[in-house]
C-alpha cells in the first residue's frame, strides 16, 4: 500500500516539471543560436560596421588636422601681417620725424632769411635816414649861414661875400666840433 503510494507520488513528481530548471532542448537552441550569432558577428558582420566607423574616425581626424593646419596658417598670416604693420609703423614714424626735422630746418632757414632781410632793410633805412639827415643839416647850415651873412651884412652895412663867409662859418663850425670833441 505504502509502496504503491510512493510509486504514485514518484510518478506524479516525474510529471510535474520544475519551471526553474533549464531543459535540454532550450539549452541546445540557446547555445546554438548564441554561438551562431557570436561567430557571424565576430567574423562577418561586425567588421564592416567597425570599418565604416574607423574610416569616419580617420576622416574626422584628417579634417581636424587640416583645420588645425589652416588655423596655424591663419595665425602665421596674422603674425606676418602684424610684423609688416610694425615695420610700416616704424617707417612711418621715421618719415614723420624726417619731415618734422626738414620742416624745422626750413622754418629756421626762412627765419634766418627773414631776419637778414629785416636787418638789411633796417641798415638801408638807417643809411637813408643818415643821408637825409646830413642833407637836411647841410641845407639848414647853408640857409642859416646865408641868414647869418645877410644879417651880418646889414649889421656892418657892407656886402659880405657869401661864399667866403660861408667858408669862414664852415671852418668855424668844423673847428668848434673838433674843439668840442677834444
Amino acid at each position: 500500500m505504502l509502496a504503491a503510494a510512493l510509486l504514485l507520488a514518484a510518478e506524479e513528481a516525474k510529471k510535474t516539471v520544475n519551471p526553474i530548471l533549464p531543459v535540454t532542448e532550450e539549452i541546445v537552441w540557446a547555445a546554438a543560436s548564441f554561438f551562431l550569432l557570436w561567430m557571424l558577428m565576430r567574423y562577418v558582420f561586425l567588421a564592416p560596421v567597425m570599418r565604416v566607423m574607423d574610416e569616419r574616425e580617420g576622416r574626422l581626424r584628417e579634417a581636424r588636422a587640416e583645420a588645425d593646419s589652416a588655423s596655424s596658417g591663419a595665425d602665421d598670416a596674422v603674425a606676418a601681417y602684424n610684423a609688416r604693420v610694425d615695420v610700416a609703423r616704424v617707417e612711418a614714424n621715421g618719415i614723420v620725424a624726417a619731415a618734422r626735422d626738414e620742416a624745422e630746418r626750413y622754418r629756421a632757414r626762412q627765419l634766418a632769411e627773414a631776419n637778414a632781410a629785416i636787418h638789411a632793410q633796417r641798415d638801408q633805412a638807417s643809411a637813408e635816414v643818415g643821408a637825409a639827415k646830413a642833407a637836411a643839416l647841410a641845407q639848414l647850415r647853408t640857409q642859416v649861414a646865408g641868414v647869418a651873412v645877410s644879417a651880418a651884412s646889414r649889421v656892418v652895412q657892407k656886402d659880405l661875400a657869401l661864399d667866403a663867409q660861408l667858408q669862414v662859418i664852415e671852418d668855424y663850425v668844423n673847428g668848434s666840433i673838433e674843439g668840442g670833441t677834444r
Partner: peptide, 12 residues
C-alpha cells in the same frame, strides 16, 4: 534534444 519550441524560436 533538438525539440524546437517558442523559446528556441525567440532565441533564434
Amino acid at each position: 534534444a533538438y525539440a524546437f519550441n517558442k523559446i528556441a524560436f525567440i532565441n533564434l
